[in-house]
Design a protein around this nucleic acid. Sequence first.
DNA 1: CTGGCGGCTACACGTCTGTGTAGTAAGCTG
DNA 2: CAGCTTACTACACAGACGTGTAGCCGCCAG
Lengths: 272, 272
Amino acid sequence: MAERKVAITRATGGDGGDDDGRGRAGPHFVDLTARARIRDAALRLFAEQGFEATTIRGVAEAAGVSSGLVRHHFGAKEALREACDTYALERAMAIKEEAVVAGRLADPTFMVAVHPTLLLLQRYVARSMVDGSAAAAGLFDGMVAETERWIATGRLAGPGPDDDDDPRAFAAALVAMQTGLLILHDHVSRALGTDMLDVDGQVRLGRAVVDIHSRSLLSAEQAAQARAAYDEIQARWPARARGKEPAGAPDEQPPRARDEEPARARDEEHRQ
Amino acid sequence: MAERKVAITRATGGDGGDDDGRGRAGPHFVDLTARARIRDAALRLFAEQGFEATTIRGVAEAAGVSSGLVRHHFGAKEALREACDTYALERAMAIKEEAVVAGRLADPTFMVAVHPTLLLLQRYVARSMVDGSAAAAGLFDGMVAETERWIATGRLAGPGPDDDDDPRAFAAALVAMQTGLLILHDHVSRALGTDMLDVDGQVRLGRAVVDIHSRSLLSAEQAAQARAAYDEIQARWPARARGKEPAGAPDEQPPRARDEEPARARDEEHRQ
DNA sequence: CTGGCGGCTACACGTCTGTGTAGTAAGCTG
DNA sequence: CAGCTTACTACACAGACGTGTAGCCGCCAG
């Protein structure tokens, strides 16, 4: 495009400018095209406040431009969102690519350095899922599909992919859990006492997630009890419940069957 | 419109109309006080669309009343939210209490039957956390605190509470993950092919969560690698990083250190 | 019967939102 | 030079929102 000329003469430096306002995979410049600054501001505000709560005027102010310019560059608010979607995906892939091809994957310094950007992008995507962006929905599906594929490879540690397992549900739960961490950024950060996207918080949270997924929170008997309870429920609810037929007697005693994992969150919730 | 108000004043005239519009812990009536219907509609809409996106007029329409009546009963939108917060907590506690004192905890039929209500309440709370309700923030903190307490009891299965662990981060991550499932209701349901709050989806998801938490997704060496990577990062980032001091050499090789759990979500994300 | 009272509605007001339009300045092209 | 495009601004508009107000209609105490 031709915006470059004006932007350059306009003291935004020589950062070039199709639409990301910087060299391909180069580092961040402080001076960006106004369009890029708008997009960045929108991305951040969308991620922090959500789509609806973010106003075009707010984006304009954060980017240091007039609200009219936002419209001039992006037309409508929805188009601005789509631009953010595209950019988030593109930029995240670029970072990942650089990390891989440049062999910097093994360099923690690099990874941590780019993480603020990367995590913001992820946070944006996560928030978009809540706000109901079409792109985010596709992304969620893609993540579930890939996780499912990853499960199928059997690289998952532990007892192995179970007998009659439900990999789709497994994958969906995993993705939703992971995304939940980003969505609840503010609350998690408050609990941690640090921004979870800062290096410190990010490490603490990362360790916690590794801990959670590198041990089994439920004992074998606890898990068995829970599964038995689910069997019972399925048996009594004739719906299309994955090939079980209803049993007759409506009153038996599954051993205190709802005190396990899924119930924990419930308990705590009501406690407060 | 007009015929309804008559029916209501006639039918609900005796219940005092404090706020829930029914006998204390009684079953649901189809005919509720208008106030109760408004609150129920608001709860559902807040849970489904979020607070900002939900309009008073929308609530009124869903409840079958005029928008003015919403204001008449609740004054302001924020007060309506607070009423929902209070009610959600109260009702959830009531259900739980009934389940415990009536000994119906062991009756899966009951649990499943009340689950649609209970899960909607939970979903409301989860969504409130995203929308930034003060009550929800307190609830999150309470859940984290209780989970932390639960961890301290050592009832957690597996290798036991680790050496220098970070129970706060552990608890926060756990709570956020659990909550994420509710927040991403739509996406999870789409992945499942069923509403995750229906009996079928609820069972499938419950099984998946039990599976996730009753095995270790990461092998011992994977976990060790990840932890080593975090050590490395902490060592190089002198922040207030929990009592480690920076090391000198800026170039070593943590064995492909960022390919584990936390990276998985990232990978999939960019893939699509 | 009468008067007050609470549930309930209709309608109006100010604000904020996304959007539309007119206009200015600067640079490239001819 | 003129003519066009592009970045950018200021201002106006319609609609939707939360909120405010006046009033109707059954009920029930006196």
